[in-house]
Design a protein around this nucleic acid. Structure first.
Lengths: 247, 247
DNA sequence: TATAAGTTTTAGACGCGGCTAAATCCGGTA
DNA sequence: TACCGGATTTAGCCGCGTCTAAAACTTATA
């Protein structure tokens, strides 16, 4: 019933809402989806007609309950697909995003169920993002923090990496930074450049530009009661080649 | 580059060309895709502009080399998907068609390669249809015949069943008729009603309406040099429940 | 061979999802 | 408080893939 374009709008609004809390600006959606503002305005009107968003002219837009449910469904598809492709079709976690971004709109409910079943109902995808549950109830609030918010000396575990930029993902894979990687902030330099040291390889330092550090979500290293401590067992043997990342 | 609608047109034209040999009529495509004739005319003009079909006004349409290649690629996607869903996601062969019909337009080349690899480059899908090879060279001419063309006493092996009608497929699954099933034509009654007897269960007879008998493709029972004698090992233990059809 | 019946194409419309250019609104500053 | 700049919306266009109604073509038949 909903077009895949509409699903993409809902997904974007959901993501932007998570980032900033409040209502989402037309221009923010436009930038996220790489379309013009007038295009967003007209699409948002249609979403409003269908009861998927609430909107105040010139102000911004928010998902309704129903809109959020749709966004969560698409997100569930996306993350189940990323997990499936990684575990069963030999994709590395830096490759899966584009494939999932297309397929998420085209799999049936049945397909979703069967994939979830063979994966044994996973709760986190290969990038560390939480997979919405089958009943599409809104997930817990995110307690992770951006790596860029931390100071020298902080001991951290990588919780999630963004899945939206292929190039960045390859960079991180090469650097050996993945969900579960334990590290210490060695230094924070001007322009937000963050240097980290690997807990299991004291020799190696890695410097990350601010924008990359901002997209890496972390939690304190001692917090092992965290709900998504699931696949926290990456060897991180100093090679970082995506090939060895495999449950 | 090509829309999925265009791919569907090319696929239909390919299928209809296989059935009838010559050029394909506008109305035939319209019926196959459940759209109106004017819609077909305008779409066919666009396909001609792109060099995918050759067309003679008021006469009919044929695929060019390039158009055929595209059709074969989509068909390869479709049949690899049907095989994959059946073998790895627990679909029965009567369920897979719709899912594959959507996904065939949305998987990447990479996905195609990986699915082909984990399936070990299959040459036939669960319905018995030949899977085009990765290089997309046109397949051998079909040497099978419709069950409806046969007479009482003929000993046959089911080669393929149509994958286009879900209801018919369930009917056949229930009746225990699948690729590889050996049977004898017991009787041909008025209106083309065909009664068959199962080679491995002499007790059981099954009567099939003409339209169903026409969609079942068979080969002579003794012909075991056939190129697609691949998965010819269905138990056919008289239950016919689709659950047990599994390599 | 003239014409009727059946196909096919042409003509013109529509909703979708995108665009650019122009008008409008909002918030901050003089 | 008046104005200016930036964000947003309105207006109007386009290509896609679909439709219906009408015109044109083909073919079979009288």
């Amino acid at each position: 019933m909903l077009s895949d374009v509409m699903e993409d709008y809902l997904k974007s609004i959901y993501a932007l809402q998570q980032e900033d809390g409040g209502p989402v600006a037309t221009s923010a959606i436009a930038e996220y989806l790489e379309v013009t503002s007038p295009t967003v305005t007209s699409m948002v009107e249609k979403l409003e007609d269908r009861g998927l968003v609430e909107r105040e002219k010139y102000k911004g837009v928010e998902l309704t309950q129903e809109g959020e449910t749709v966004a969560l469904e698409v997100l569930r598809h996306h993350r189940l697909l990323e997990s499936y492709l990684t575990e069963h079709l030999d994709y590395s976690w830096s490759e899966v995003h584009e494939e999932a971004d297309t397929l998420e709109h085209h799999i049936s409910e049945e397909f979703e169920r069967r994939v979830a079943e063979v994966l044994d109902d996973p709760t986190v995808d290969p990038h560390g993002d939480p997979i919405p549950s089958a009943d599409l109830t809104p997930p817990e609030d995110d307690t992770t923090t951006p790596l860029s918010d931390h100071d020298a000396g902080d001991l951290l575990v990588v919780s999630r990496v963004s899945d939206r930029d292929e190039e960045e993902l390859r960079y991180l894979a090469d650097a050996g930074i993945a969900p579960g990687t334990r590290l210490e902030v060695a230094d924070v330099a001007p322009f937000g450049m963050v240097t980290v040291r690997f807990a299991d390889d004291g020799e190696r330092d890695q410097s990350l530009p601010e924008n990359v550090a901002r997209s890496i979500r972390v939690r304190p290293a001692d917090d092992d009661s965290d709900p998504d401590s699931d696949s926290e067992s990456d060897g991180g043997d100093g090679e970082g080649n995506s090939e060895e990342i495999e449950a």
